[in-house]
């Protein structure tokens, strides 16, 4: 925007030029906005497409993958739920995921308490170590766990999976619970002590109810981290015990059928429902 002080007659052409510039400017701005909106729209489409495409595919009538599907049917869901291999893998993974959720949530919450509220020697070292499984390539961890578990007959084994997935899922719990504890006003715990509560009562009756959203979010992340985990599961599964991730990996690699689309849809729906529940719980807490 020019604000020059030239006498008026001299300014007129400038003003006209200014209008032209302003029109061009507005046009360029609108054009820029359209381009930006298009780019962002494409990126969002790119992000969402692969998740959503599995749903119509799972409803296909044909044996081969076709898009758009020529007719609608639930036969692939029927195939999924009646296949003993798929069902075994699903139940195995579900059991592991539930047990992992319990251990990771309890251990992660305890460790977060020790780090935020305690006097812990080597506290930052423990923090770095506990977050390590998020950073170390999962293939390295998978190979390493196979080497250790194989001679102990812990491959394809519930406890083997539980150990591996607990290590992988705990960082999520620690991150959410640490954040919740840092938002928590420590004066509330002192007030509880002052009212005559001991440490345990203060934790159960005052601290826990106030950090519950963080703990719940951590638990959901832990569940998904286990249930959707595939790389480590790929190595520590065997014929006797196969997780749903390993089963899917095999089938995508060797035997691409729309059953996988049905399984994928089930996984997507479970994930979205859990995340939605967490979101609603948080929104309710705030509102």
């Amino acid at each position: 925007m020019s604000t020059d002080l030239a006498p008026l007659p001299n300014r007129l052409p400038l003003i006209r030029g200014h209008y032209a510039a302003a029109t061009f400017h507005a046009f360029a701005k609108a054009f820029g906005m359209i381009v930006l909106a298009t780019v962002i729209g494409c990126v969002l489409f790119f992000l969402l497409l692969p998740t959503l495409i599995v749903i119509p595919m799972s409803l296909s009538e044909t044996d081969y993958i076709q898009f758009p599907p020529s007719g609608l049917s639930l036969k692939w869901y029927r195939a999924y739920f009646s296949d003993p291999d798929w069902m075994a893998a699903t139940w195995f993974s579900l059991k592991i995921a539930l047990a992992t959720t319990a251990t990771a949530t309890i251990m992660g919450t305890m460790a977060a308490l020790a780090i935020v509220r305690g006097r812990l020697p080597f506290s930052s070292a423990l923090q770095a170590l506990a977050l390590g499984p998020m950073i170390v390539p999962h293939i390295v961890l998978g190979v390493a766990l196979y080497l250790v578990f194989s001679p102990l007959q812990l491959t394809g084994n519930f406890f083997g999976f539980l150990i591996a997935h607990t290590v992988l899922a705990t960082p999520y719990v620690m991150i959410t619970v640490t954040a919740a504890l840092q938002r928590f006003d420590p004066a509330l715990e002192l007030a509880a002590l002052n009212c005559g509560a001991n440490r345990l009562q203060a934790f159960v009756l005052v601290v826990l109810p106030n950090i519950a959203p963080g703990v719940a979010a951590g638990a959901v992340f832990a569940f998904l981290a286990s249930f959707d985990e595939a790389t480590v599961a790929f190595f520590i599964s065997d014929i006797g015990g196969k997780s749903i991730g390993r089963k899917m990996f095999e089938d995508i690699d060797f035997n691409l059928t729309p059953v996988i689309a049905a399984v994928s849809t089930v996984l997507v729906v479970v994930s979205l429902m859990l995340m939605g529940a967490i979101h609603l719980a948080n929104a309710q807490k705030r509102g």
Binding site: D185, A187, L188, L190, A191, A192, L193, N194, C195, G196, A197, N198, A202, L205, V206, P209, N210
Partner: peptide, 28 residues
């Protein structure tokens, strides 16, 4: 220990338990 002193205290920002009602706070 602080929980065995039986001293009443009013905190700077009150430190009322946000998840409890007024009645439950007083009953605590």
């Amino acid at each position: 220990a602080p929980n065995r002193r039986g001293i009443g205290m009013v905190f700077q920002k009150y430190a009322l338990f946000p998840h409890l009602t007024v009645r439950q706070n007083i009953a605590f």
